[in-house]
Amino acid sequence: MKTSFLDFEQSIADLESKIEQLRYAQDDSAVDISDEIERLEKKSAQLTKEVYGKLTPWQISQVARHPQRPYTLDYLSLIFTDFEELHGDRAFADDHAIVGGLARFNGQPVMVIGHQKGRDTKEKIYRNFGMPRPEGYRKALRLMKLAEKFGLPVMTFVDTPGAYPGIDAEERGQSEAIGRNLYEMAELKVPVIVTIIGEGGSGGALAIAVGDVVQMLQYSTYSVISPEGCASILWKSAEKAPEAAETMGITAQRLKTLGLIDKIVSEPLGGAHRDHAAMAQSLKKSLQEALKQFDGMPTADLLATRYERLMGYGRFKEQAVG
């Protein structure tokens, strides 16, 4: 797969295309230019390192939305085995923007639930751009309750621009569906490990993101509203999205500093989309460590710790009432 480059990667893109040309020339050239290619490849890696070393939050949100970024089903095939997809909310429909089912993680049965985006136009529409409707949250909840019944840990993968803002979604109780998940996940009697793999967009993300461990991939984002949405409300102009991204604090680094997430999972050089297999390896290791924490932990402790975590969210001060 040919890497597609983002605007701020122009210098890397230029260099890569030069390398590509040289490789092409090498094929029918008598002169050996492999040294030159190697030199340029090193230079490209160095350049990528430099560019990625100082990404702005807005640039990171572009990487998080990269069209080649690995999605839930990619991780399912790279990290898990024996995936048995389970469909439907048993009430209305099967939402394709959320996938889920039973799978084995290092041989251990688990429940996997995640948002799913599409790659090409057709699939994007099929997946509704990763924006779930109420039946998606209800399917997710049904699978979580199933996991609870059989004592299976739940692993969720978050990657959505947000809940679908459509007439039908409202008619079928979008608000209730999200709220119900928040309520039920607060007291689900099995460990829930949450990973933000791309875009953690608002309520649509949170509806499967209440858990015992919340980790983020290095270039994923997690926010209460998209930078564009925030900019158009507060600045009255979507053009101010970079400023909004900066001030809202949407990156893994910032959220870790604020104590809102537990861990950052590092991505391969140039982002997860450059090397799906390496990304999956890094994520697998992190999931393994996360899961180990709950080995033999009594359910009461699990729930008490989760409750404490939930109650701990927020920054305020206390002062004497006058």
């Binding site: 309520g203 209460v224 809202m248 949407i250």
Partner: peptide, 21 residues
Amino acid sequence: ARMQEGLFSLMQMAKTTAALT
């Protein structure tokens, strides 16, 4: 949600709802 509090405000959704359990 109050955008000026970023992700802290999103987390209030989980916090308030959890208390009701």
